[in-house]
Structure formats: C-alpha cells, structure tokens
Computed example of a mutant assay.
Amino acid sequence: MQSLLKILLISALAVFLASCGVTRKGTDPEKKPPPAPRVEVSDADELPMVEHGVASWYGPNFDGKLTANGEIYDMNGVTAAHRTIPFGTILLVENIDNGKSVQVRVNDRGPYAKDRIIDLSKGAAEAIEMIGPGTANVQLYLVEGDLENSRITDIKVPTYTVQLGSYQEKSQAEKRQKQINGSWIEPVSSNNKIMYRLYYGNFTDPDEAREEMRRLRRSGHDGFVKQIENN
C-alpha cells in the first residue's frame, strides 16, 4: 500500500513539474520579429539603377522616435532614410559585397555622413547581412515610385526653400503671395485636405536659405527653412 502511495505521489509531482515548464504561445520574451523579406539579385535585372555607394544602418537610438515623414521608426522594419528620394518610394538595395538584397520603403531623411548614400533600418541591414561590418557597398534600384516627374535634379543634393505660410483657402495664399515678389503657391495634401503653402526660393545651401529667411523676417514676413520634398 505504501509503495502504491509513493508511486502516485511521484507521478503527481512529475505532472506538476512538467506543467511549470509550459510556456503559453506568444509569451516568449526572447521571440524575435519575423525576418525581413529578401529579394533575389536577379529581380533587379529589369529595374532602373538609381544610385550606388556606401550604405549604413541605424537602430536602437532611434527606435520609437518619429521619422521625417511623421511615422514612428521601427528598427526591425524594412525602411530607409535617403537625402532626397520621395517618401514612399520603394527601392531594392543590393549589397554588392555579398549579393544579398532587400526591398525598403523610404520614410526618413539622411544619412548625414558625406560618404554614405542611404541609411537602412536594422531589419533591412540584417536582411543583407551588414550588421557586423556596419556599412556595405550597395546599388539602389527603383521598384516603385516616380523620380522622373519629381523635383530631383541631383539625388545627392537636398534642395531647400523658405515656407512662408500654409492656408486652407487658396485666396488667402494668393493675397499673401502678392506681398512677396518671387514667392509661389503649391497645393499640398495634408490629413485628406488640400492646403495651399507659400514658398520662396530654391537653395542647395541651407545657410543661404536661412540668410534669405532672415532677410524676409526683417521685411516683416515670418517663415522657416525646410527641405523641398520631391513628390
């Protein structure tokens, strides 16, 4: 009888210990996000080549912060920062050091190091295996977007302007435009509404744009310098 009781106790203890080791689905703190999609290099054969140079990547210090287009940066996503290419453009980034490639969506501005042409999210950098080296020689191909009809003249050089106002009514913008020779109005979609923005000047040197802004302020016209978005 005692032997049978011991067997039952040992069995019950084994079941209890086994149940302690069960982890519910979705609660694993070490679970990694799904891997970034990879695109074969052969897919780039028919795509227009946009640029070639050195890519870098950015991650933890920026994760959760706002990107230049107003999104929240997800370092594990497959996005990229470029100085001038329109937001929403889809690029194929080929790591010519190892043949790996990945599609990314441009949603941020940068990089600001002179010898870099694109900053990849950590997820995109992992897809082309450049996390360890930190940089890679890459070629950029256009997958989706319109660069021919954008205001890009040199994708390596950002263009700046002075924004003097944003108006719901075109008549308001036109009234202000008459006060500032050389300014122009541009309709912009914002929150599903059309806004009429008033701009002045095109500059490749941001210091020149800031100097022009100060001149306009001395004349009673307030504004701020911004990079022209090529879309």
Rank of each mutant, 00 (worst) to 15 (best):
V102A: 06
Y141E: 14
E40F: 10
M195S: 02
L66M: 13
G182F: 01
R116F: 00
N231C: 07
P206W: 00
G53Y: 09
N192K: 13
E51Y: 10
H52Q: 15
V39R: 11
V157F: 02
N98H: 00
I96K: 14
A113T: 14
G182M: 03
I90A: 10
L13N: 04
F16K: 00
K6Y: 07
T79G: 08
K122R: 04
N149P: 00
L147Q: 04
E186L: 05
N137P: 01
K31E: 08
K156R: 14
S171A: 10
D205F: 03
E126G: 01
R217F: 08
F224L: 07
I96E: 04
R210Y: 00
G64H: 09
R105F: 15
E174T: 09
P60S: 08
D108C: 02
I131T: 10
Y199W: 04
R38N: 00
E212M: 08
L17E: 01
A209Q: 02
E212V: 05
R105T: 15
Q139M: 05
A14N: 04
E169R: 05
M75E: 14
V39A: 12
G21H: 15
D205A: 03
D205L: 05
S219C: 06
G70V: 11
Y160C: 00
K178W: 08
E71T: 05
S183I: 07
Y196H: 08
G123C: 02
I90M: 11
V188L: 06
G88V: 06
N191L: 08
D45C: 02
Q177A: 10
K178Q: 14
D146M: 02
T67I: 10
I131L: 13
D108L: 04
D154L: 07
T89R: 07
D119T: 08
D108M: 03
I194E: 09
N95I: 14
K100W: 05
Q163L: 06
N95M: 13
A36V: 06
E169C: 02
Y58Q: 13
Q177C: 04
G132C: 07
P86G: 00
G88S: 03
G99F: 01
D207R: 13
G88W: 02
G201E: 00
D97K: 09
A14L: 12
S56F: 07
L91Q: 01
G165C: 10
Y167F: 15
D97H: 07
K170R: 13
A209S: 01
E46M: 05
T79V: 11
Y141Q: 11
T161W: 03
L47H: 00
H221R: 11
Y167M: 09
W57Y: 12
E129G: 06
E126M: 01
A127T: 04
F224H: 10
N192M: 12
G77L: 07
A113H: 12
L9K: 10
I194K: 13
M130R: 05
G59K: 02
P60C: 01
N202P: 02
L120R: 03
E174M: 13
V41Y: 09
L147Y: 03
V143T: 12
A68K: 01
W184L: 07
P33R: 03
G145W: 01
I152F: 13
Y200L: 14
E94V: 12
G165P: 09
